[in-house]
Amino acid sequence: TLSQEQQALLSFIVDAYNKHRIPQDMAKKLLQEHFNAEENFMLLTDMATSHVQVLVEFTKNIPGFQALDHEDQIALLKGSAVEAMFLRSAQVFTRKMPHGHTEVLEDRIRKSGISEEFITPMFNFYKSIGELHMLPEEHALLTAITILTPERPYVKDQAAVERLQDPMLEVLQKFCCLQHSSEPQHFARLLGRLTELRTLNHHHAEMLASWRMS
C-alpha cells in the first residue's frame, strides 16, 4: 500500500494536474470554427503556447521544484515541454469524446501543414497510450516524472532532480501494482512510453526545422 506521505504526494500531483488545463474557450475553438491551413497552424501554435504556460503552472506545484536552481528549472522545462505536451494530447485523444470530435481534431492536425512522416508516429503514440488504459493518476505522475528527468541538457545539479523524481517513480510503481495487479508489466510499459516520447521529441525538433525551411 501507499504510505500516508505517498498518498499525500499523489493527491497533490493529481490535483495540480487537473487544476491546470488549457482554457476551455481555447479548446472549444478547435472544434467550432473553420480555418484554412495557415489559420489552423496559427491556432495550433496558440494552443502550444497555452499548453506550455499551463505546464509551467503545474510544474511549479510539484513539491520541491521551486527550490531547484532557477536555471535548472528552465532546463528541465525546456527539455520536457514537448514530451509533456504529447502526453497531455495523448490523454485527450484516448478520452471518450462526443461523437465526431476525435475526427475533427485529427483532421485539424492533419491539415496544419505538418508532413505525414511526423504525424504518423504521433498518432501511433496516441494509440499506444490508449492501449494502456491509463488512469488519471498515472497521467499526472508520468507527466511529473517526464518533467523531472535529470538527464536533460544543461541541468547542473542532476542529483537534486533525481531526489525529486525518485519518490514519484516509487509512487507510480506502487500505484500500478495496486491498480493493475493482474498486469505485472504495467509499470514497465509506462516507462517504455517515456522512451517513445524521447523519440517523438527528436522528431519534433526535425519537424520544426522543416517548417522553418518552408
Binding site: T49, V52, Q53, V54, V56, E57, K60, H70, Q73, I74, L77, K78, A81, L208, A209, R212
Partner: peptide, 21 residues
C-alpha cells in the same frame, strides 16, 4: 534556434508570473 528561444521565453515568463492571479 529561434523556436527554442521562443519556448524559453514562454517558460521564463510563466515561471515568474502567476496565471492564477
Amino acid at each position: 534556434p529561434a523556436s527554442n528561444l521562443g519556448l524559453e521565453d514562454i517558460i521564463r515568463k510563466a515561471l515568474m508570473g502567476n496565471l492564477e492571479e
